[in-house]
Design a protein around this nucleic acid. Structure first.
Lengths: 286, 286
DNA sequence: AGCATTCATCAACCGTATCTATGGATAGGA
DNA sequence: TCCTATCCATAGATACGGTTGATGAATGCT
């Protein structure tokens, strides 16, 4: 196959019409350039130049190949430039899968930091529950996943690395001023997603009762509206409260019911620069 | 700048998703491929792959560069194929400048041979008198020039090589049956181009008279029509008669008045293949 | 637990590009 | 006409880089 440095030499000789001038331009010695074009002709079996007196002139085939060479070299240059942009994080994208609460509470700030600090680095966000987020991370559909778990002693998911982001306390939401979970054992409860509901049942079991779950929704606004309407009480993560807070409601932190929030990445360290940048920004959030 | 063999390795690893598989495909050893991608990453400063367990996965930057690499390699391939076509004379073009008589008498046959023997090789023809044809040859505007001269002892034009093609006798065209030039000394003459007219004067001078040139034209049909109309006599090259012959006219070969016909090419041997092919065909014409 | 696979590292060999020095040829000037 | 400067090709020496084979570490499967 054709050799790139030969093509570069050919293009230079074609542009300057002289072996010596091309050598000067390329910072080569003249014999080196002469040798290159001789080898190129031998390798391709084509006559690229015709020697005329003490000069040379391109043949039709030589002109054609020189044009192609210039084009290829141009593409090479632009590919190198594009790669440099990726290295400097002024190009590329990061795809992150995250659950709804973190999406509204954290990602807007991340996006704002990216816009000023890494313009050109696209942030793509996918709203998914943790199990699916991990699956997407393994499948390479996202570069990072923001997940949570209640029990930090449970084993880490296989094949991914977890970076602890923060602990998110769970709050009891009520209309009245009674702050204990057990005090609401006979009321109706509003549940969240599957895992949140399971955790709610567990917390209540610790207090010795089974909650009567009247309605389940992931929507933090809906949950608060239902409680405010007197439908019952609910638990809600602190991050959700940070994003939206109904004025009529009281919130009491439930001890020992923190959500442990992590960013998961795939593969061995080091993480690719865009992913590392996302991690940095997430870690530095207040 | 980026190295092509590295890019080829990168493209292969990207396509197969494995260093070992890429090595098999490229007929490289596995460490060689591993080394190549390590060097490519070091040279570009970009993280192209992420090691995950016993495998590897492309990063965003790696995917981008691999795509560009595949594109560049494709262009390289097509350039090589195009070049091969030129070598095999199934592509390219030959540009030839020729004077009118040779154009109508020789070039159609050349064109016919090219069409069957070198399909894809374009033949471009320019109608020019010999001095201009030589100038165009020197300027690189044509690859060959078909010229003639009467005096073969005159020095060859500078900077070009002449290949003798044939000797084209000059004929005396008359309405009657008198075949000698001197026998028409008092008639009126029809002249051709500048150089032909000068030659006519010279031939007549050898016979001891100066011809009375009543009309001059290059058009072989017009010359014959004028003579047939009784306007006078004329000289005409054999090749012209070969292309067009007025039935009423008699033609007598003038001894020692041959046109020497040559193909001129530029630069040192060997000629580029398309030019050599044209020469071959011209030489083999009857 | 054992085996096969995968990728990274190391040392040795080989190929090839590059340089300097030299030669042959040509174009321009005295 | 000769001389000189310029240009391209060739030859030999050096050094850089690529390829290979052997080896090691880590992982996933049976």
């Amino acid at each position: 196959m054709l050799d790139l440095s030969r093509l570069r030499v050919l293009a230079a000789v074609a542009r300057y019409g002289s072996v010596t001038a091309a050598a000067r331009e390329l910072h080569y010695s003249q014999p080196s350039v002469s040798h290159h074009i001789a080898r190129l002709e031998a390798e391709t079996g084509a006559q690229l130049f015709q020697r005329v007196g003490r000069g040379i002139r391109l043949t039709e085939a030589g002109r054609m190949l020189a044009d192609r060479a210039a084009e290829i070299l141009g593409r090479m240059d632009s590919a190198a430039a594009e790669l440099d942009a990726h290295v400097g994080l002024s190009a590329g994208r990061v795809r992150v899968a995250t659950y709804g609460t973190a999406l509204v509470a954290l990602l807007p700030q991340v996006s704002a930091v990216f816009a000023t600090q890494y313009p050109g680095l696209r942030l793509e966000i996918i709203d998914t529950h943790p199990p699916e987020a991990i699956a997407m991370l393994r499948a390479g559909e996202v570069d990072a996943a923001i997940i949570f778990r209640y029990d930090e002693t449970e084993p880490d998911p296989e094949g991914v690395r977890l970076h602890h982001l923060r602990d998110d306390p769970t709050y009891l939401l009520t209309l009245d001023r009674r702050g204990g979970v057990a005090q609401h054992r006979d009321e109706r409860w509003v549940g969240g997603c599957d895992r949140c509901r399971a955790h709610l049942v567990e917390v209540c079991a610790r207090e010795g009762f089974e909650p009567q779950i009247a309605y389940s929704t992931d929507d933090m606004v809906a949950i608060q509206a239902l409680v405010a309407a007197g439908m019952g009480v609910a638990t809600i993560p602190g991050l959700a409260l940070q994003a939206h807070r109904h004025p009529d409601l009281n919130a009491y932190e439930i001890p020992g019911a923190e959500r442990h929030v992590y960013v998961a990445t795939y593969g061995d360290p080091p993480d690719p620069p865009p992913t590392a940048a996302l991690l940095d920004v997430l870690m530095s959030l207040p």
